[in-house]
Design a protein around this nucleic acid. Structure first.
Lengths: 244, 244
DNA sequence: GCCTTTATAGTCAGAATGACTATTAAGGAG
DNA sequence: CTCCTTAATAGTCATTCTGACTATAAAGGC
């Protein structure tokens, strides 16, 4: 706000706003994009699945609330997953988006590497990963939030180094390419992808002594870790059109 | 929100959140980027300049509130400026960002063509355009919001057709180029800019009968209006690095 | 009529990309 | 052990896109 409260504004005068966060937590497992959802144990939308989230506490910022919720739902903290990427998406404020009261929700997208199945901690009845491809309707306006989140990360892969956030600390270029192919739903040419990634300074960084990942079916692949760069110049454009 | 209020959650139990909108309204005039600011008439920050904005009313969305405030401050509605572009930026929720109470603010960026000086309508003591280059410190965290807004529109010019929102309904390619040069603070090669814009389908649309803008100093320029496209493929990249 | 200014047309080399082919190095089947 | 399959890696080549230019056209000012 800015122009000052209306003269005589009383914070308690009318039904107040509640402020919450909603999280679209994505991961790539088995060549499919997955989203973390929790099952609602109460009305409204009892039995439906929803994005994890919760109230912003009186003395915390929305981002702190998002990190707290993320830790509660996934058991992850900044330490356990250094690559954790949390990004504010946008805020949803339709007056009727929650039938119980006026709730304004700040949505975040989080990208995590493949994780173990979430422990059922927190207040959620159950939490599990769902294939993002085929989801039944979610509670509240979460379908819309999820669609916006999906658009955002797809677009962001084009001009940022974000894809490494989906990978474990050490990864092969094939795994990185898998991330792009999974999120975009397209196939990329392997040599071209490789050239692009390796000629972009700071995108990835070869591991010392060039260890290789063996045990797979083909020629062992070199290992890399995420580089220092955050932006991609020029961008790595999707074969077709874009959104946003 | 999503997981349900904590059992027994009472909306009136603690100091509630107020939800506001803040607007970074940009225009290009005289080859300089300008921002609309209002002077605060009350403490805190009395006498400082701030982004226009105000409370979200109990039955309206943040976007409606933003449009309402924008109309109040500029005298513009959707009708008067068809090209008006309003875009949600992000939400600022630091617990101490307003010393009076807990205020969560949804920030929007608006792009408008060159407008007459704003009438002093609304509750603001005074409102005027400021050169975005050299601004004194603003009230609250508005310096930060403004910086974020600036980053966003600069980045968005690269991959969207947004620049036309700064132009009047009919414009020349020179004027469009001026927008890019002003926002990015760089000089662009005129023939190359022209080539890029004209070969991007749907970016601009030549006016029927190819009228020309005369009265200027050089050869009269052809007039265009904004095309149907919203995204730029491939993008029009800035000469140097980017942000966000 | 010059001169300045701006719009517009066109050229040319380098960079980046898309579509390929070839080679290397593993595991698995026989 | 040897062939076969699989995947990683190394190149090639043509096309597209871009940046840096030069040239021409059409206005106003003197």
């Amino acid at each position: 706000m800015s122009t000052g409260a209306p003269a005589g504004y009383d914070p308690h005068a009318f039904e107040p706003f509640a402020v919450t966060v909603d999280l679209a937590v994505f991961t790539v497992r088995g060549g499919r994009l997955h989203v973390l959802l929790v099952e609602r144990g109460e009305d409204p939308y009892k039995g439906h699945w929803a994005l994890p989230g919760g109230f912003v506490l009186p003395r915390e910022s929305a981002e702190s609330a998002a990190r707290r919720e993320l830790a509660e739902e996934t058991g992850l903290t900044e330490d356990t997953a250094g690559a954790l990427h949390l990004e504010q998406l946008r805020t949803y404020s339709d007056p009727d988006r929650d039938p119980r009261m006026r709730v304004v929700s700040v949505a975040y997208a989080a990208l995590v590497p493949d994780l173990p199945e979430p422990r059922g901690g927190g207040d959620a009845a159950g939490a599990r990963w769902w294939d993002a491809g085929a989801l039944g309707p979610l509670a509240f306006d979460h379908d819309r939030i999820l669609a916006d989140a999906y658009d955002r990360i797809g677009a962001k892969l084009e001009y940022s180094c974000l894809a490494t956030a989906f990978c474990p600390p050490e990864f092969t270029l094939g795994e990185l390419q898998q991330v792009y192919e999974t999120v975009w739903g397209v196939e990329l040419d392997r040599p071209n992808f490789r050239r692009k990634v390796l000629t972009t300074p700071g995108f990835v960084q070869a591991l010392e002594g060039s260890p290789r990942r063996t045990g797979g079916r083909g020629k062992p692949a070199a290992l890399y870790r995420a580089g220092a760069a955050t932006a991609l110049h020029p961008p790595l454009l999707r074969p077709e059109g874009r959104s946003t």
